[in-house]
Simulated scan of single mutants.
Amino acid sequence: MFDRVVAPRIDIYDRATNEYFGRATFPVTPSVESALLGMINNAVIPRSIVLQDVTFLPSSSRYVPPGLFVKYPRNGVVRAEFRDADSRLWVPADIYINFDAQARGNISGDKYHFDSVEYTNIGIQDTKILPQGGSPQAATP
């Protein structure tokens, strides 16, 4: 059982073609941590996840940023470090999901940074705990 999450990021793919679009990075908020822990520990599918202060690192010229009024279907791999509640060691894990992405809040002129992005219609395809885990991270309590 895991009790904490650090360093989350999502590799994002087009749902129709599975073309790799790039990586989204964002800070861990209490609601994001709760959603990711529910997904990895118990396969609980949240109704939605709102990511704040999202930076997108594009890899494809065909990437279309999520809009305020349009939802874009995507596949993604959530990659993060999860802390084992018993051993207190940090373990890398991947959560394979599909979702619809829609921008929320203000979009500044930068199409690669969003105040917030909402993921809805989430489906968990698979989870993988990576075997190279087990390193303590002294910086987090």
Rank of each mutant, 00 (worst) to 15 (best):
residue 1 M to R: 05
residue 1 M to D: 14
residue 2 F to G: 00
residue 2 F to I: 00
residue 3 D to L: 01
residue 4 R to Q: 02
residue 4 R to I: 02
residue 5 V to Y: 00
residue 6 V to Q: 04
residue 7 A to P: 07
residue 7 A to L: 10
residue 7 A to F: 10
residue 8 P to W: 05
residue 9 R to V: 11
residue 13 Y to A: 04
residue 14 D to A: 03
residue 15 R to L: 08
residue 19 E to T: 07
residue 21 F to C: 04
residue 22 G to R: 02
residue 22 G to M: 03
residue 25 T to P: 10
residue 26 F to S: 04
residue 27 P to C: 08
residue 27 P to N: 14
residue 27 P to V: 11
residue 27 P to L: 15
residue 28 V to K: 02
residue 28 V to S: 03
residue 29 T to N: 08
residue 34 S to P: 15
residue 35 A to S: 15
residue 35 A to H: 11
residue 36 L to G: 09
residue 39 M to V: 12
residue 39 M to I: 14
residue 40 I to W: 05
residue 41 N to A: 08
residue 41 N to I: 07
residue 42 N to Q: 15
residue 43 A to W: 13
residue 43 A to K: 15
residue 45 I to V: 11
residue 47 R to L: 13
residue 49 I to L: 08
residue 51 L to V: 12
residue 53 D to M: 14
residue 53 D to F: 11
residue 55 T to L: 12
residue 56 F to E: 09
residue 65 P to I: 00
residue 67 G to L: 12
residue 71 K to E: 07
residue 74 R to A: 05
residue 76 G to H: 02
residue 76 G to D: 03
residue 77 V to Q: 02
residue 77 V to F: 01
residue 78 V to K: 00
residue 81 E to M: 13
residue 81 E to N: 15
residue 82 F to P: 01
residue 82 F to D: 01
residue 84 D to V: 14
residue 84 D to A: 08
residue 85 A to L: 04
residue 86 D to R: 06
residue 87 S to P: 01
residue 89 L to F: 04
residue 90 W to V: 03
residue 92 P to V: 06
residue 92 P to L: 05
residue 96 Y to K: 13
residue 96 Y to V: 11
residue 101 A to D: 14
residue 103 A to Y: 02
residue 104 R to N: 05
residue 106 N to L: 13
residue 107 I to H: 13
residue 108 S to R: 08
residue 109 G to H: 07
residue 109 G to K: 07
residue 110 D to T: 06
residue 110 D to I: 03
residue 112 Y to N: 08
residue 113 H to T: 07
residue 114 F to N: 12
residue 114 F to L: 08
residue 115 D to N: 14
residue 123 G to K: 13
residue 124 I to S: 04
residue 126 D to V: 06
residue 126 D to F: 08
residue 130 L to G: 09
residue 131 P to F: 06
residue 131 P to Q: 09
residue 134 G to I: 00
residue 134 G to Q: 02
residue 135 S to T: 15
residue 135 S to K: 06
residue 136 P to V: 02
residue 136 P to T: 03
residue 137 Q to N: 05
residue 138 A to K: 04
residue 139 A to T: 09
